[in-house]
Each structure stands twice: as C-alpha cells, then as structure tokens.
C-alpha cells in the first residue's frame, strides 16, 4: 500500500546545465554543467574559494544566492524555480558542511518529520477523515507509509551501521555536537531518507580515519541503494575509500577538468597549482 515517491531507483538522472550563481552582484559559479545518473559517484574537487559549497547550496535552492535562468533537471522536470522543501520532496538531499544547531529539536524528531515530508504519497495530504480527530497527526502518520515501529527499526539499523549510540537520537540537532558528530548526523539523515540524489559537502573534513571509513561505507550503501552521489571535497582523503566514477575539478567557478578516478590521484600528487595558474592567465 505504501507509495514511496522518493525511493532511490535506477535510471534517474540529475542534469545541471550552464548553472550560473550570484551572491549579490558577484558571480560565483560561471556556468557549470554536469550530469549524474542513479548509482554513480561524482567527486567535485577544488581549492578553497572555488565555489564548491556554493554549488551544493545552490542545487538545494539556498535563498542566499540568485541563479541566472538555467537548468537543474531532475529527470524531465526543471526544478530550478522550486523552493528548497519541494526539491527535497523530489529526492534531492544535501549533507551540510557545517550544519546549524536547532535547539530543542531532537535528532529523532527531525528524522521522523523529514521522512514523513519526503515520503509523502501524492494526494494523501488532502484526506481529512471526519473520524480522525487530530488531523495533523493523522495526516502525517498515514502519509509516512511506515508504521511507527517500522520506522524505528529503520532508524536503529542505520544508527548501528554508523556506530552511533542510540542516545544520540534524543539530543537536539547539532546543538553542542562536535565536528565529527555533525557529520555523522548528516550521514544518518541521508541513510534514513535514502534520497535519489545526495550531495555531500566536505563530509570528510574533521573526521578521523575510523569515522572517515564509516562515512565512506555510508556513501557506498546509498550508492548500492541506487542513489546518485556528488561528493564535494578539497582533499581526496575520502576518495581512498570510495572510487568515484567521475572526478571534476572546480576552480574559479568553472569546471576546468573532468576525468576518471585517476584524476583525483593526480591532484593528490600535483595539487591545484596548474589550474590556478591557468585561471590567472585567463584573467
């Protein structure tokens, strides 16, 4: 009976065409084109200030940026004008580099609400049964397509997978979290929501080797489930544990080179120097 609109699946495609992004009058991304299929892992690498985080935030529809008419296609639908929550509802997910604290809102409560909102079967929202007194509660639970205990099982299996203590679920979201805890919390949300396309913004910074391995395992699990993955990173640390299908080098708001996994290794050896010099010479 449950209709999971958002379930990650094969054959989906996220296509970004000539994405230009401005912060005020300043152009930060100067025309990015990229195409990610279900089950693919793309790494976007670049030095500080190259526009990597802007790219992630703009895909999610951050109101801080304006986007010049362009395309972000999810399948056949251009989502560039959709508000953030609707993009999420269509299966886009962003793991934030430094997610903000929300006092008094528990991790579990956030997981439940976002699961319910992103896995809402079309039409159910409008059902207002005269027999259900509390329409707010009724609507949300029916919409989730899972019973409370099924949902809890799902959450518990993901916390165990990520070696997260279950008491973590009762803490307020990102409130007093260490850097590593924040990353784990983002990873946990990704695994519970199993989006069609997930963007990981610097998931590897601030993690020790063990935590890094766990994060990488999480990403691989998502990939196996059919999610398309974009990993944004400065270093290629996490790429030792995940072999990306494609690597793109982002410098000065442009993708200056794309290649296979060995491009990341090349950057590890040589750094971004040659691209930055190129950039300067263009200017």
């Amino acid at each position: 009976m449950s209709i999971k609109r958002q379930k990650s699946g094969k054959g989906e495609k996220l296509t970004i065409t000539n994405l230009r992004v401005f912060a005020g009058k300043k152009e930060i991304l100067k025309g990015i084109s990229l195409s990610v299929r279900s089950g693919e892992v793309h790494a976007i690498m670049g030095p500080n200030g190259s526009g990597k985080s802007t790219f992630a935030q703009a895909l999610m529809g951050c109101p801080q940026y304006t986007v010049r008419k362009t395309g972000i296609w999810l399948g056949k639908r251009n989502i560039v004008d959709l508000p953030t929550d609707e993009r999420a509802g269509l299966g886009l997910f962003l793991a934030f580099q430094s997610p903000v604290a929300i006092a008094g809102v528990g991790v579990l409560s956030l997981l439940r609400t976002s699961y319910q909102e992103t896995h809402r079967a079309a039409g159910v929202d409008k059902v207002r049964s005269p027999f259900i007194q509390n329409t707010l509660l009724a609507r949300r639970w029916r919409a989730a397509g899972l019973t409370v205990s099924e949902f809890m099982d799902k959450v518990k299996s993901r916390t165990d997978f990520l070696h997260i203590d279950r008491s973590f679920l009762e803490r307020a979201v990102n409130d007093g979290f260490s850097g590593g805890e924040k990353k784990k919390s983002e990873m946990l949300q990704a695994l519970v929501l199993s989006p069609k396309f997930a963007i990981f913004d610097e998931i590897d910074t601030g993690l020790d080797v063990d935590a890094l391995k766990v994060a990488a395992a999480g990403i691989l699990k998502l990939q196996k489930g059919g999610s398309g993955i974009i990993i944004i990173t400065h270093y290629q640390r996490i790429l030792r544990y995940i072999k990306p299908d494609f690597v793109h080098v982002l410098v000065g708001g442009r993708i200056v080179e794309s290649g296979k996994a060995d491009l990341a290794k090349q950057i590890e050896k040589e750094g971004y120097g040659k691209y930055i010099n190129n950039e300067k010479s263009i200017i």
């Binding site: 929550d85 903000v100 956030l110 976002s114 929501l193």
Partner: peptide, 20 residues
C-alpha cells in the same frame, strides 16, 4: 534553509524552531 532542505515546509520549519 536547513529544515527546508529536509523537505519541511517553511511554516512547519518555523513551528519546529519555536517549539524547540
């Protein structure tokens, strides 16, 4: 923005923040 990126509408995000 954070809560919206989790599929939560603006109004619902506000009430979550207030209740928190």
């Amino acid at each position: 923005f954070y809560l919206k990126s989790r599929g939560i509408s603006g109004a619902q995000a506000q009430s979550m923040i207030v209740n928190g």
